[in-house]
C-alpha cells in the first residue's frame, strides 16, 4: 500500500535555523491500516505527513504508493491517491464557494479539469445523500457558501471531500485539534465511521494519547524525527496511557515533557 523507505528531511540546511525534521524514517502500511501517530512538538509527525502529501520533496529516501514511486511527484499530482484533512478548518475548503461547488471539485480529485459544467444539477442528489450521512443538516444547504459553516462543520465537510473520490491513503493532520472538545468528539466519530465503512488506509496525527489509543489498529510514536514506537493488533488494543509513557521513556531515554499529551 504505502511504503516509506529511509526518508530524511532537513529544513534550512547550513543555516543557524537548521532543523533535522526526519532522519531515516521507514514505514509500511497494509491496505486498511488505520494508524494513529503521536509525538511531541517538533517530533516530525507533520513533516512525515507533508512529505507523503508532497508539500515538499524529501532529501533522501523513497515514497511509494501501490507500486507508484511518487518521491519526485508534485503535490497536486499525488492528490490522485491521497485525501487530506488539515488541522486548520479553513484550509480544506474554499470558503467563498458553495458547499455544492466544493463537493463537485472534490468528487473529481486527481482528474484534469475539463470544460464540462462544474456542478451539474444531476449530481445534487448524490451530494445530498453524502451530506445526510454527516447528520449535521448540511444536506439542505448545498447552495450556502462554506464560509458560513462552523469549524466543526467545515472539518466534517472536508473529511467528506477527502474521501469521496476513493483515496488510496487518507491523511488526517490533527484535524480535530482546533475544535472544542464536544465538536472534536463528533468529528472523530464521523471520521471513524467513514474509515471503517470503507476500510480506508489512514494515517491520523493526534496530540491526544487517549484518542491515539482509542482509534485505529496501529499506533506509532515519533521522537526527534524518528519512529520510536510501532505497535499494532492485540498489543495496541491492550495498551494504556501509562504503558505508552513507560515505552516512551525507555525508547527515547527521556521523560515525556508535553503536558498536553499527558492530560489529553
Amino acid at each position: 500500500m504505502l511504503r516509506v523507505e529511509n526518508i530524511s528531511k532537513t529544513f534550512n540546511p547550513g543555516t543557524i535555523t537548521e532543523k533535522i525534521a526526519l532522519s531515516d524514517v521507514s514505514l509500511r502500511l497494509n491496505p486498511g491500516d488505520f494508524v494513529t501517530v503521536i509525538g511531541g512538538n517538533g517530533a516530525g509527525k507533520s513533516t512525515l505527513m507533508n512529505s507523503i502529501a508532497g508539500a515538499f520533496l524529501v532529501d533522501t529516501g523513497k515514497i511509494i504508493i501501490d507500486n507508484n514511486d511518487i518521491t519526485k511527484w508534485p503535490e497536486h499530482k499525488r492528490a490522485k491517491f491521497i485525501g487530506r484533512v488539515f488541522q486548520d478548518p479553513m484550509m480544506g475548503t474554499a470558503a467563498g464557494m458553495m458547499i455544492e461547488e466544493n463537493l463537485a471539485i472534490a468528487s473529481r480529485r486527481g482528474k484534469t479539469p475539463s470544460f464540462r459544467w462544474s456542478a451539474p444539477k444531476s449530481e445534487r442528489e448524490k451530494f445530498r445523500e453524502l451530506l445526510k450521512s454527516l447528520n449535521l443538516g448540511l444536506e439542505n444547504r448545498l447552495e450556502n457558501k462554506v464560509g458560513l459553516l462552523s469549524g466543526g462543520q467545515r472539518q466534517a465537510l472536508t473529511l467528506l471531500m477527502a474521501t469521496m473520490a476513493d483515496p488510496k491513503l487518507l491523511l488526517l493532520d490533527e484535524h480535530t485539534a482546533a475544535l472544542d472538545p464536544k465538536t472534536a468528539e463528533k468529528v472523530l466519530a464521523i471520521t471513524e465511521n467513514i474509515i471503517s465503512d470503507r476500510s480506508l488506509t489512514t494515517l491520523m496525527i493526534t496530540h491526544n494519547m487517549r484518542d491515539a489509543l482509542r482509534f485505529g489498529n496501529r499506533l506509532i510514536m515519533m521522537y526527534n524525527g524518528k519512529i520510536i514506537i510501532d505497535v499494532s493488533g492485540k498489543d495496541k488494543k491492550d495498551l494504556e496511557v501509562q504503558d505508552l509513557l513507560e515505552m516512551f521513556e525507555k525508547a527515547s531515554g527521556s521523560e515525556m515533557d508535553s503536558d498536553r499529551m499527558l492530560l489529553g
Binding site: P74, E75, H76, K80, F86, M91, G92, I105, R109, A162
Partner: peptide, 9 residues
C-alpha cells in the same frame, strides 16, 4: 492548499 489537495496545478 485546498485546490492543490484536490489535484489541481
Amino acid at each position: 492548499h485546498m485546490i492543490r489537495a484536490n489535484g489541481v496545478n
